[in-house]
Amino acid sequence: MNRGFLWLLFWCNLLGTVYGYIWYDDQLLFTLQNYPAALLVFVPDSPTASLFFTLSLLFLLYPPSGRSLKNAGYVIQGLAVVTSIKYGVWAVSMIVAGWSFGGDMIWQDFMLIASHLAMAVEALLYVRFFGFRMVSLIVAGGWTLLNDVMDYTFGIYPYLPYELHNYVSEVRTFTFTLTILSFIAGWIALKKAKRL
């Protein structure tokens, strides 16, 4: 909770978020050209998760005093935990699965593995400092499930390694399962922090 370290984490996450949205540039453009614009919010999964975590760090650095802003911060913190765990693990799993089916190992994959593992780990480490409770966690779980539904109903899920294109139904099942497990991880963290 050292402020200097929180600021370091903030800038690392902010830069990672910006990079993540740039990474999704082609898919965002494709979605905008081929789907209703309202679906754009469901496309960039990992950078939106890191955005939630970045904003959560701001709430730690500058705790709000007003009730409405505090409640909004709690929802963002819940979203940060559920989505960072989920998409951190999901991205690593998809990269490794692509390799296991014969995909090439490229340097960007190792960078993505490191950054996405960091997303999941930092969410698990910082959940105890966040102030959200069960209602915020339920909202976060509901939003993440809605995102899954939109991804696999409209085909706007993150681009998969070529080797996994024949396994979209298995990826979908894994994705929904991971959302539920990420929600449970958040629930366990709340229980340990005695905030249930």
Rank of each mutant, 00 (worst) to 15 (best):
R133E: 12
H116I: 03
W143I: 10
S93W: 08
S65D: 10
L117M: 15
W90V: 04
V127F: 07
T144C: 09
R67Y: 10
M94I: 00
G73L: 06
L117F: 10
Y126G: 09
F132E: 00
A120Y: 13
L69Q: 10
F129R: 01
V96L: 01
L79I: 04
S84L: 05
G142A: 02
L79D: 03
R133F: 05
V135T: 14
F129L: 07
G102A: 02
S68W: 01
W143N: 10
L146R: 07
S136C: 15
F132W: 11
N147C: 12
Y126H: 14
G88K: 09
K70P: 07
S115V: 06
S68V: 02
G103Q: 06
I106L: 04
W99G: 03
T83K: 05
E122C: 03
R67P: 09
V81S: 03
M105Q: 02
V127P: 04
S136L: 00
L124Y: 14
D148C: 05
A72H: 07
R128Q: 15
L146G: 04
S84D: 06
V149F: 14
M134W: 07
G102Q: 03
A80W: 02
Q77T: 01
I76Y: 02
L145H: 11
I138E: 06
V92A: 12
Y74L: 11
W99A: 04
I106H: 11
I85S: 11
A123C: 14
V92D: 00
S68D: 08
G88W: 04
L112Y: 08
A140V: 06
E122K: 07
A114Y: 02
A140H: 01
N71C: 15
F110T: 11
G142N: 05
G98R: 01
A114T: 12
S100V: 14
I113Y: 08
D109P: 15
G131R: 08
V92Q: 01
I76D: 01
Q77W: 03
Q108M: 12
D104P: 01
Q77H: 04
L125G: 14
W107M: 05
W107V: 13
V139M: 01
W107K: 14
Y126D: 10
Q108H: 11
A123Y: 00
H116A: 06
E122Q: 12
G142L: 00
F130H: 10
F130P: 04
V135W: 13
L145K: 06
D148T: 02
M119R: 04
Y74G: 08
